[in-house]
Nucleic acid binder design. Structure first.
Lengths: 136, 136
DNA sequence: TATTGTTATACTCTATAACTATA
DNA sequence: TATAGTTATAGAGTATAACAATA
């Protein structure tokens, strides 16, 4: 009925569609959606466990298990911080970096059928509107 | 770099933001995101277990547990189909219908700070573009 | 035989609480 | 005392495989 309600519905629907798509791409590489997010975050950062927990919006204990499993699979490496012996830095292995590149390409491919429904100028307008929504 | 890449990134970011928001609203009512989806689906449908599994994109066995827990909480009701004794129809209880209305209002409230960043005509344009993306 | 749904099993994700080690 | 991280525990979500009942 309301303009804002219509927008809210569209946003929720698109989010579910994108999430399903991301889950599929992740599953192809035997990754969970959370592990996919970890890969994305660690692509340009080497955070501590606590920082990673903040990025993910999860408890530190949850991230401990998450990173342990990822390390066991050879996806991440844990190194002790030289300045603070309590701190642990997490980083991607080179294998995981390749995997991340692969997965991102996969996302692009799966998303193309959607984005291709819009022409180039529509794509640009949509990107601008979504960026504004996210606060620039 | 590419226009399509920018759009892909915006869509993924928006999806994560919306998902986080939905999870928060759900958690306020002690619901998981999946249970929230179930509520949304059952608001205008009374599907069988198999149909519900298709809507959710989950295995039938998964939905069995999901609906069992929801039934135990008094959110849904299972009734046997009169024409096919194998089939089970799932429907919301009246309490759950009220809960669904409440939750949807909560989503609107939490989403308002985002959508309010756009003026009315921008909201309409965004809605149209997202609808086109989803295939009308 | 095929379909609907459940059960058994196993694993991941998640949080809370209690703990260790370091600061 | 406070902070970083782990461990123990418990529960939800998920899939696969095997099953029962019905068609």
């Amino acid at each position: 009925m309301d303009t804002a309600d219509d927008l809210r519905d569209s946003l929720v629907q698109v989010s579910f569609a994108v999430t399903a798509l991301l889950s599929r791409v992740a599953a192809e590489q035997d990754l969970s959606l959370t592990q996919l997010r970890v890969l994305g975050i660690l692509r340009d950062r080497e955070p501590t466990m606590a920082e990673l927990a903040t990025y993910l919006g999860l408890e530190r204990s949850t991230v401990s298990g998450l990173i342990d499993r990822a390390a066991q699979r050879g996806l991440v490496r844990k190194t002790t911080h030289p300045d603070d012996a309590r701190s642990v830095r997490v980083s991607l292995t080179t294998e995981a970096q390749s995997l991340a590149t692969l997965v991102i390409a996969g996302i692009g491919e799966l998303m193309a059928p959607l984005t291709d429904r819009l022409n180039s100028s529509e794509q640009k307008r949509l990107t601008v509107l979504l960026s504004n929504l996210l606060g620039r």
